[in-house]
Design a binder for these strands. Structure first.
Length: 392
DNA sequence: CCTCCACTGGAAACCTAGGCTC
DNA sequence: GAGCCTAGGTTTCCAGTGGAGG
């Protein structure tokens, strides 16, 4: 036993030699220079520059799929802007999907402008009023970055965007400019035309990286992150190809390279080979699923567990029966079928199950439900939850 | 071509936890 | 502390429906 531990430590010590600066491959790392994004950086900088002579920059919308560098460009430009040392400038960054509700998105904006917002109890309108009041009173110049703004619009409508885009003189001498970041190229369709015209005074599209560009990015990062000869050109090619085959997602490519490096390190290898990369890719998928399950509310877990009882799929009625039984045994309240149907749709969206509506003619209409993940992953992750500890 | 099943999914009402003002 | 407010999750109610079997 202790031999094994010694062995792990020994390998870790040797392995450490693979990485020089692991952070260069972390998701938060933003390099000084963003390769292949000079045009976009300059454009954003040009749009925002007027703030340095006290006038309100146009609102700007950044479009592009995940991992095309939108967030990195926005952050980089804004941090340079902040470095200019302008006193009344406030840069607020909100990821609306992580904030999860309109209210919490606003609360984050409030935080950065210096308004304390209780985590519940106020109406949206009241929160907006308070923030606006603060901006006016202090003459603050706010640049609000709303990341994944399409999520906000899709789930809650454009209510607060409307407020923002029309805030105009209500804020003088302060002002608020929006930098919207969207993964969805079509999200404008659902927008009120007045909001749209104001929000997209300027627009910038981020094309997906080509495999060649990904290779360039990875090479640069690998250079800082690893010792020389750890990540061969062949390894980098494979990472770029695997991540790029779908949609030129740089984040995924970088994650893949980092995890492949970690795998190699753990194995005590001197360099990253193909099998490291393939295993890294499997691990990423596995981790994504585990994390998704772990963060589920109890009821959703129970439903997922009920789904897993049926090898080869089931339908709503049958599942609901199994689910209520399971709840009784686990000693938790069960929800109505209507709600379960809604939760099934959520689980479908997360990619944990597949639920599609099928009609069986005279025998009614239902959802065909199938588990998309492995039993062991599910069992292992759910057994951490004390509610389901024993059975399953 | 019509029926009719076993649900789906929209809408509204209800509930709880929390903050607000007075 | 009373009486108001809201968000978010859930329940209640119900009209709507695709298509196999008649």
């Amino acid at each position: 036993m202790s031999d094994e531990i010694d062995e792990i430590f020994r390998r870790a010590k040797e392995g450490r030699a693979l990485f020089v600066d692991r952070d260069a491959l972390s998701p938060e790392y933003i390099p000084e220079r963003l390769p292949f994004r000079d045009t976009q950086m300059n454009s954003v900088a040009e749009v925002l520059a007027p703030i340095l002579h006290e006038s309100k920059p146009s609102n700007i919308l950044l479009y592009g799929k995940t991992g095309t560098g939108k967030t990195a460009v926005a952050r980089r430009v804004l941090s340079k802007l902040q470095a200019e040392g302008k006193k009344n400038l406030v840069v607020s960054y909100v990821n609306t999907r992580l904030a999860n509700t309109e209210y919490r998105s606003l609360a984050e904006l409030g935080q950065s402008t210096g308004v304390q917002i209780p985590f519940t109890g106020l109406s949206i309108g009241e929160v907006v009023d308070r923030i606006f009041k603060e901006i006016r009173a202090k003459g603050i110049h706010v640049i609000l970055v709303m990341d994944e703004i399409d999520y906000l619009v899709k789930t809650f409508g454009d209510g607060i965007l409307y407020e923002f885009t029309r805030s105009g003189d209500r804020l003088a001498p302060g002002f608020l400019s929006l930098v919207g970041i969207s993964n969805d190229l079509k999200f404008k369709e659902g927008l009120d035309p007045r909001v749209l015209s104001s929000l997209s005074e300027e627009e910038l599209v981020f094309p997906p990286y080509t495999v060649d560009e990904l290779r360039g990015i990875l090479t640069e990062r690998a250079h800082t992150a690893f010792r020389s000869s750890v990540a061969s050109a062949a390894a980098i090619n494979l990472c770029a190809a695997m991540a790029g085959s779908e949609h030129g997602d740089a984040r995924r490519a970088i994650d893949l390279l980092r995890i492949a490096g970690e795998v190699a390190e753990r194995e005590g290898l001197k360099e990253i080979d193909d099998s490291c990369i393939r295993r890294a890719s499997d691990k990423m998928e596995h981790d994504r699923v585990e994390e998704a399950i772990r963060s589920l509310p109890v009821q959703n877990k129970a439903i997922l567990l009920a789904v897993s009882k049926f090898r080869g799929g089931t339908n709503t009625g049958e599942l609901y029966l199994a689910y209520t039984n399971l709840c009784r045994r686990a000693g938790i309240e069960s929800l109505t079928q209507r709600r379960v149907s809604g939760i099934l749709a959520e689980l479908d969206l997360l990619g944990l199950i597949e639920a599609s509506v099928v009609s069986k003619g005279r025998r009614g209409r239902t959802k065909r439900i199938q588990l998309l993940i492995g039993d062991e992953t599910l069992g292992k992750t759910l057994s951490e939850d004390t509610t389901f500890g024993k059975n399953s």
